[in-house]
């Protein structure tokens, strides 16, 4: 047996991780329904709690939709690394001779595909319930698609930091929610601008810039956080 001096194949490793996470998630389909169901439920609560008057709802719809979507993504984050940690495969992921930042990026990508994207796609439907002005539906979906990717990246840092803790989920919200405020501001700002017939480009551009920054920095932070917290 000879010592191996180099490891080939980050590509196959990434692909395999994407496929594995997708397969696992699709086999536990029940969990996939939770974030969209939560999103829809929270939106249903607002007319009941505030008022069913369309004008009133329309005025606050962009913010409500964004806050509810943000909380729905938050809800699913706790599970991002937890089951992998419990069965020991997270430890093995950290021992793979591959850049960990790239591997966790693959995991976050699957998470976005299965929670962020569905939320973005169903948001226009819920916008309808809140009498969101026509013309802002596309922006709503686009801003959520962009923003939820950033939310997933930021949230994954918190999920990684709390993965070794028994009751990490409440703490996770405390850690992550303050960091998501810029995404919320520009996300709902874009929808508001669209609803009032204003220029949506600046807010969407800011969401894009945040995503770019998160893509550059968050994977390293997630990887570092996992190395720290996996051993409590």
């Amino acid at each position: 047996m000879q010592p191996r001096t180099s490891v080939a194949g980050l590509g196959p490793a990434l692909l395999a991780t994407l496929r594995r996470d997708l397969t696992v998630a699709l086999r536990r389909r029940g969990d996939l329904v939770n974030p969209p169901a939560f999103f829809a439920l929270v939106i249903t609560l607002f007319p009941l709690g505030i008022s069913p008057v369309p004008e009133q709802l329309a005025a606050i719809a962009p913010g409500l939709l964004w806050v509810a979507a943000l909380l729905a993504t938050q809800l699913s984050l706790d599970a991002l690394f937890r089951s992998d940690h419990e069965d020991g495969s997270l430890e093995q992921l950290l021992l793979a001779p591959q850049p960990l930042a790239a591997l966790v990026l693959a995991k976050v990508a699957v998470h976005w595909l299965l929670t962020g994207l569905p939320l973005a796609l169903m948001a226009p439907l819920l916008g309808l319930l809140l009498s969101l002005p026509s013309g802002s539906y596309g922006v709503l979906a686009a801003s959520l698609a962009l923003g939820s990717a950033t939310l997933g990246l930021i949230g994954a840092i918190g999920a990684a930091l709390t993965v070794g803790l028994a009751r990490g989920s409440v703490l996770l919200s405390l850690l992550v929610l303050p960091l998501t405020i810029p995404v919320l501001i520009f996300g709902s700002g874009a929808v508001q601008a669209a609803a009032m017939g204003g220029d949506v480009a600046p807010a969407l551009a800011m969401l894009g810039a945040q995503l770019a920054l998160a893509l550059m920095l968050a994977p390293w932070a997630i990887a570092g956080a996992l190395r720290i917290s996996i051993h409590g």
Partner: peptide
């Protein structure tokens, strides 16, 4: 958040490193 995260870890070193990263 930083204070809570530090307190949540059982080992002082783990809490210290996690809080630093956060």
């Amino acid at each position: 958040g930083v204070i809570a995260l530090r307190g949540a870890f059982a080992s002082r070193d783990g809490g210290a490193r996690a809080a630093s990263l956060l």
